[in-house]
């Protein structure tokens, strides 16, 4: 393989095409850097909005429902939501680390971005869905105990509610797993190109 490629017509045509000579002053760059930070802030705020809703709703449940088991379930759910918020923060921080690793080799940049997405999708049980389960189970048990209906009906209602939550969680996990598999195929293709 030759070390140098000849400067043929295509290269000359490409390199000599007219350009506008667009430049940016440092003031403009700093202004856009500030705008960039604000955009990141709002993106993170959207990520946390769902967590805030969960905390508010279960905070109100603690006030509305006197049953201690339901209250305990609310506290555990809120704790789970805060843990998810922490995990989101951790993942978002690593994504927006200095210059977002923009200086990596292009192939590695693509691969690492895909690997981060794949890991987040594969680990969904441990960092996103799982932390909500204990609180929801305890809260449902509290509802079953507190409900003024026959015992058999309470058990049935709780079972149906937990099953519904389980199905939704399972579907979410399956969708994420499928997406992770697709990403893995792309990652393998990129790895092959690096070897």
């Amino acid at each position: 393989m030759p070390d140098e490629f000849p400067q043929d017509d295509y290269c000359n045509a490409w390199q000599n095409q007219p350009v506008e000579n667009i430049t940016m002053s440092l003031e403009e760059i700093r202004r856009r850097a500030g705008k960039f930070q604000r955009r990141i802030w709002w993106r993170n705020a959207r990520e946390y909005a769902a967590i805030v809703v969960v905390v508010i709703v279960f905070g109100l449940y603690m006030k509305w429902f006197p049953n201690p088991i339901m209250r305990a379930g609310s506290v555990i759910t809120i704790a789970g939501a805060l843990y998810v918020a922490y995990q989101l923060h951790r993942r978002v921080s690593s994504e927006t680390a200095p210059a977002a690793a923009e200086f990596e080799q292009c192939l590695g940049f693509h691969r690492h971005a895909l690997e981060r997405q794949r890991d987040a999708l594969e680990d969904i049980w441990t960092w996103y869905l799982g932390p909500f389960i204990p609180g929801l189970v305890v809260f449902s048990a509290g509802m079953a105990i507190a409900a003024p209906i026959p015992f058999r009906h309470r058990v049935l209602a709780t079972a149906i509610m937990l099953a519904a939550i389980g199905v939704v969680f399972w579907l979410v996990a399956q969708m994420n797993r499928r997406a992770a598999r697709k990403l893995q195929t792309k990652i393998d293709q990129l790895k092959a190109l690096e070897q």
Binding site: M24, I29, P98, A99, E102, F103
Partner: peptide, 10 residues
């Protein structure tokens, strides 16, 4: 240009 400026910090 913005990314370039940011990256040169590193």
């Amino acid at each position: 240009h913005l990314a370039l400026w940011r990256s040169f910090a590193l």
